[in-house]
Design a protein around this nucleic acid. Structure first.
Lengths: 232, 232
DNA sequence: CGCATAGTTGAACTCTCTCAACAGCCGTGG
DNA sequence: CCACGGCTGTTGAGAGAGTTCAACTATGCG
């Protein structure tokens, strides 16, 4: 009945992206102070699971490098990708007892693990850290709403364009690496592999983007892509 | 780029529903203690807006009675209903500065208004209240994920069945009042009015539900409805 | 080099949407 | 109190976006 969550946060590791995140990132009392002491570093290899649906949720994680996917499968096999997590993002920053998604490494990943109890103590002890977590959760809800609009009301082309812009938003360059498969993208956008593939081909035909192998796309015409995304 | 949020919480006013909510609801130090002092009661009439997209977000609200709808409109008119808020639910429990949804009364509504600054102070002052807010935000994210699965992967029949079960979940009886229009439901489920209407008609034809006017449905066969919802 | 996996493209199909007409309900005013 | 008008909801028919099934191609790893 409920899903585990993964919440994005750009506070420390990657460059800031939004007003909220910028604000958080510049908090004088940086969150890493309080958290650094209690985290343990760990490595995950490509396709290795971090945890499974149903597991006890005894830790919070933060991605240092690489990319993680959280997903869920319906009894009949339909899959839903909850989120892609990149450096700086927290995984499952909520208070659920049981995992409701499976988290897997898309490529080799380094992350920091925080035991739930210690993490909670840190939040309570450090007021600015608590505020930050609140902010991150708020931001997560906000972007969840954005995604619901996408899933409920946008066309395939708009969804794919929005997705590419999202991925591009993380970087300066016009070159975007997609560590996930087309199937992952499809399950993230509520489409099929074929539709994602066809849509990307259309964008190439229109010279909006270009591909360097399936995993790398180059944005040739950013404003055209933004128009296609029909940003609301 | 970001959406305002409305977060559900059953802690005080209505009966508890989930593990998390139950836990919160039984917190010895009840949240109403800390909040009651700073809230002001207000009344809203049917169709009256509480706030609009773009407004300054200087308050948090909590529904006492009635029902509120939050929504957003894309430039070309496509609408997305973010949430329906019922007694006990908080509206826009996040730290965004600007409203990214419009909130309107579906019927006559009583709510409590908390000035943002005082609300934030209360959270910081009262540890258990802070925990509760964190819990509510977590729960909001969890149900957002649930909804994304619905929007991305479920069929029209599954969506409508899930919706009816959601609405029924708030009550003991098998009689469910729907204060929102078919259009609201459609925009909430990512469907059209016609599809919602047709699906409800199908359910009636199968004797799964029954209607007493458009606004009241009676669940005749709960397990059949649950099957239709294909609960994941 | 060769196989397996991932991605692309084509064609037919289907679910949902769109457009359109009709029906039912409710409040207002005669 | 009933009749009218407007709004909300229902039903029908046709169209279209995206899916499904299937074949083919490219890529990457042993």
């Amino acid at each position: 009945m409920s899903l585990q969550l993964s919440v994005r946060n750009m506070a420390v590791l990657p460059p800031v992206r939004t007003a909220m995140e910028a604000r958080v990132g510049r908090t004088p009392h940086d969150d890493s102070d309080a958290l650094e002491r209690i985290g343990t570093r760990m490595v995950l290899h490509r396709h290795q699971p971090l945890f499974q649906e149903g597991d006890q949720a005894d830790a919070v994680y933060r991605v240092v490098s690489g990319a993680v996917r959280t997903s869920r499968v319906m009894p009949d096999g339909r899959r839903y990708v909850a989120d892609f997590l990149f450096p700086g993002d927290f995984i499952c920053l909520n208070d659920r007892q049981v995992r409701t998604v499976t988290a897997e490494a898309l490529c080799d990943v380094i992350l920091i693990r925080y035991a739930r109890r210690q993490f909670n103590s840190s939040i309570e002890a450090d007021r600015s850290l608590g505020r930050m977590i609140l902010s991150i959760l708020s931001g997560g809800l906000t972007s969840a709403q954005e995604r619901m609009m996408l899933l409920g009301r946008k066309t395939a082309a708009e969804r794919v364009a929005s997705f590419l812009l999202m991925m591009a938003g993380r970087k300066e360059s016009d070159r975007v690496e997609l560590p996930m498969t087309r199937e992952d993208i499809a399950d993230y956008l509520g489409l099929t592999i074929e539709t994602v593939s066809r849509t990307i081909s259309q964008f190439k035909a229109k010279a909006v983007i270009q591909t360097l192998g399936a995993a790398t796309i180059v944005i040739q015409d950013l404003s055209a892509l933004e128009d296609l995304a029909e940003a609301a």
